[in-house]
């Protein structure tokens, strides 16, 4: 298939960005979206032009490194998917594809389609852990955990930290991301010990970093590649409330 690409190009964080149009031809519908980008970049390099910068690594939907806002949707036109898993069979011959970076104040553009997501690391550093050191811990089976809770904790822990939730939200809220981590630990006895401090510190950090409020549009859940549920946000709100009154 042949496609017209409108790609956001921006030299650096402070530079002015703009859309640039490219044509790609004879793309196989079995190719992945990023392989299509590779083909474009190979052509650009062969012509002596600078390739389009974009983040990616594992290319199997688990590292959370890839991003891209494709035709107005984080990770493009499919559900429960990351950009690296998206395949060209989801596009039509002759289509125009608009490709932009995540746009959110706490995620400044580094170059072209790459953004800086270190704000997410900072939120985790504010409390997204159980404060145990290596060694001296009890036997793994010492504390039985209800399968139901372990499964719910796993559902929440599946978050890959890609930032699609923030990019989809008109307020650039990070509630889905933060609540997934808060929920994982809130559901496990190991995490309960510090539950109150954790939720307060992580929420405070999120606010300081400039992420917006949640106004319940559910846009985040709709684009989450790991289908993290907004029930986690409800759980986090409860945890936050309990922490505040205790």
């Amino acid at each position: 298939m042949d496609l017209k690409l409108k790609i956001w190009r921006q030299q650096g964080p402070d530079a002015q960005g703009k859309f640039v149009e490219y044509l790609v031809q004879n793309i196989s519908s079995d190719a992945s979206f990023l392989e299509m980008m590779d083909i474009l970049n190979e052509e650009l390099v062969a012509k002596g032009e600078e390739p389009v910068a974009f983040d990616h690594d594992c290319r199997e939907g688990i590292c959370g490194m890839c991003s891209l806002y494709i035709n107005g949707r984080p990770h493009g036109p499919d559900t429960a998917i990351t950009t690296c898993q998206l395949h060209m069979r989801k596009f039509k011959d002759g289509e125009t594809v608009v490709i932009e970076p995540w746009r959110a104040k706490p995620f400044p553009v580094i170059k072209d389609l790459m953004v800086d997501r270190s704000a997410f690391d900072e939120i985790i550093q504010a409390g997204g852990y159980v404060s145990v050191n290596t060694g001296g811990v009890p036997d793994a089976n010492a504390i039985p955990i209800k399968k139901e809770n372990a499964d719910l904790a796993m559902d929440a822990a599946a978050c890959i930290g890609c930032g699609a939730c923030v990019a989809a939200c008109k307020n650039a809220s990070a509630m889905l991301f933060v609540s997934a981590k808060v929920s994982q630990f809130a559901l496990l006895p190991q995490g309960r010990v510090e539950a109150n401090n954790r939720v307060e510190n992580m929420v405070a950090k999120m606010d300081v970093l400039g992420f917006g409020n949640c106004t319940n549009t559910y846009a985040c859940e709709a684009v989450c590649p790991k289908e993290i549920s907004i029930t986690n946000i409800a759980r986090m709100n409860r945890e936050f409330f309990v922490a505040k009154i205790s």
Binding site: V137, A140, P144, D151, Q190
Partner: peptide, 17 residues
Amino acid sequence: DQCVAQGVPFAREYGGL
């Protein structure tokens, strides 16, 4: 043991182990 203490949600059976 270490990973469980950190809150790694390993798969469990109905008895909780």
